[in-house]
């Protein structure tokens, strides 16, 4: 089953086509990556999928229905969640409150119920807090629940963003450069976390420059260059594809990735 499908998806800015007629099929389940050189349109593609910017042309279908004209909050309700390349936690709010915000689309208490502090509101709020604590436990931030989000370290803020996106149990999670700025140990922990997320049945679509990370985790890889999709395939196919090697990987990296794969297989 195809979870996410873009057809002819295009976003033009003045004098620049950031995303150019991209056709992409992301199957339900698994981990999928979008790679490409800087400026290839990866983040714009994520902005289009999450509804942060409207497309200039083309369509987006999610779980069988057209979402092209839906606003971000409507897509969130359908189960599209994301993190941001430049971290965007709500800095003045606590870590737990940040995660609770991720449940916003799933709260149904009305204003009179909130003002009267009716039982339904309080039950819903307690349930939300429990879910938020579970999400923090998932990313290992339980101890920091009451800290201000701005006081967290860079890596912890990245994990907070993942908890905030995952708390509503989305069908599709978009991770925009999740390993950026992380050391090898942190990257390894992140890979384990992404695998766990896959285990929950959430489909993961990620943009990442760390090729070891991408090749180890991904089921499919989509390659963008100058806004165009130049290839989509398995990691092994992508590594061997001359167009990808020329546009992005370069011969040395391709060779190293091949050696690495051989070593893993032997080991």
């Amino acid at each position: 089953m195809i979870l996410l499908q873009t057809a002819g998806l295009t976003r033009r800015y003045a004098g620049l086509v950031a995303v150019d007629a991209v056709d992409m099929d992301i199957p339900a389940g698994g981990i999928h990556a979008v790679i490409g050189p800087n400026g290839a349109g990866k983040t714009t593609l994520f902005n289009l999928i999450s509804g942060v910017v409207p497309p200039s042309a083309g369509t987006i279908r999610f779980a069988g229905s057209a979402v092209t004209s839906l606003l971000p909050h409507e897509r969130a309700r359908l189960g599209i969640a994301r993190t941001f390349q430049n971290i965007r936690v709500f800095g003045a709010m606590t870590v737990l409150e940040n995660v609770l915000t991720g449940l916003h689309a799933h709260l149904s208490a009305t204003l009179p119920e909130i003002v009267a502090r009716l039982g339904r509101f309080r039950r819903e709020e307690r349930a939300a807090v429990d879910r938020a604590k579970d999400a923090l436990a998932l990313v290992g931030l339980s101890a920091r629940a009451d800290a201000r989000a701005a006081a967290l370290s860079y890596g912890d803020q990245r994990r907070l963003e993942i908890a905030r996106a995952m708390v509503a149990e989305p069908r599709l999670l978009l991770l925009d450069e999740p390993a950026a700025g992380m050391n090898p140990a942190e990257t390894e922990a992140l890979a384990a976390l992404v695998r766990r997320i896959r285990g929950f049945g959430t489909t993961v679509l990620l943009v990442e420059h760390d090729m070891g990370f991408v090749m180890d985790l991904s089921d499919t890889v989509t390659v963008l260059n100058f806004g165009r999709r130049i290839f989509q395939g398995t990691p092994a196919e992508v590594r061997r594809e001359p167009a990808v090697i020329e546009a992005y990987l370069g011969p040395k990296v391709a060779e190293r990735l091949a050696r690495r794969e051989a070593a893993t297989r032997a080991g």
């Binding site: 606003l71 971000p72 969130a76 941001f84 003045a92 916003h104």
Partner: peptide
């Protein structure tokens, strides 16, 4: 408060 801090992120979290 989320909107005040970052409208884009608030929208993505499901805030209308």
């Amino acid at each position: 408060e989320a909107m005040r801090e970052d409208e884009t992120a608030a929208g993505v979290m499901g805030v209308n």
